[in-house]
Simulated assay, not measured.
Amino acid sequence: MAPAACPAASRFPRLLRTALLLLLLLAASRRAAGAPALTELRCQCLQTVQGIHLKSIQSLKVLSPGPHCAQTEVIATLKSGQEACLNPASPMVKKLLQKMLSK
């Protein structure tokens, strides 16, 4: 006589695969949440602003040349919250950077 097919036994492999998949997804999401954000592998400043009022600048960020971009990038965060790329070769930006470095 053949053993009777047990409905629970046929669902067990499917349930096991589903549980394993959920466990892997949970582990992957936790790892991604703690991982640092990837930076873009291209220059962030495609165009630069030539003139900007100094009093409208809240902060400056200087990105050194690297594998992502061959040139130095200067990004100003304005008091309005917008960001503007400044030309690092302009005399105004050079003077502003010197002032920042001296503080």
Results as ranks from 00 to 15, higher is better:
residue 7 P to S: 05
residue 88 P to S: 03
residue 15 L to Q: 08
residue 14 R to S: 07
residue 47 Q to L: 13
residue 50 Q to S: 14
residue 78 L to I: 05
residue 64 S to H: 13
residue 55 K to C: 04
residue 16 L to G: 00
residue 71 Q to D: 12
residue 12 F to D: 06
residue 70 A to Q: 06
residue 26 L to N: 03
residue 57 I to S: 02
residue 39 T to Y: 01
residue 59 S to L: 05
residue 56 S to I: 03
residue 2 A to D: 12
residue 25 L to T: 00
residue 21 L to V: 03
residue 36 P to F: 02
residue 27 A to Y: 02
residue 103 K to F: 15
residue 70 A to T: 04
residue 12 F to I: 09
residue 49 V to N: 09
residue 43 C to T: 00
residue 99 K to M: 14
residue 86 L to P: 02
residue 66 G to T: 02
residue 19 A to E: 00
residue 65 P to R: 09
residue 88 P to V: 02
residue 55 K to A: 13
residue 2 A to Y: 08
residue 2 A to P: 14
residue 52 I to W: 10
residue 72 T to F: 02
residue 35 A to F: 00
residue 81 G to I: 05
residue 51 G to L: 15
residue 27 A to V: 06
residue 59 S to P: 04
residue 49 V to M: 11
residue 80 S to G: 04
residue 12 F to T: 12
residue 48 T to Q: 13
residue 1 M to P: 05
residue 9 A to T: 09
residue 74 V to N: 03
residue 49 V to K: 14
residue 21 L to G: 01
residue 47 Q to F: 14
residue 33 A to T: 00
residue 20 L to T: 09
residue 29 S to T: 12
residue 7 P to A: 03
residue 14 R to N: 02
residue 69 C to H: 02
residue 9 A to F: 07
residue 28 A to D: 05
residue 22 L to T: 06
residue 96 L to G: 06
residue 4 A to R: 14
residue 91 P to C: 08
residue 56 S to W: 03
residue 26 L to V: 01
residue 76 A to T: 10
residue 13 P to M: 02
residue 18 T to C: 11
residue 22 L to G: 14
residue 22 L to W: 07
residue 57 I to Y: 06
residue 75 I to P: 01
residue 83 E to A: 08
residue 89 A to V: 11
residue 92 M to N: 12
residue 63 L to M: 12
residue 8 A to Y: 14
residue 99 K to T: 12
residue 43 C to W: 01
residue 51 G to R: 15
residue 96 L to I: 14
residue 98 Q to C: 07
residue 88 P to M: 04
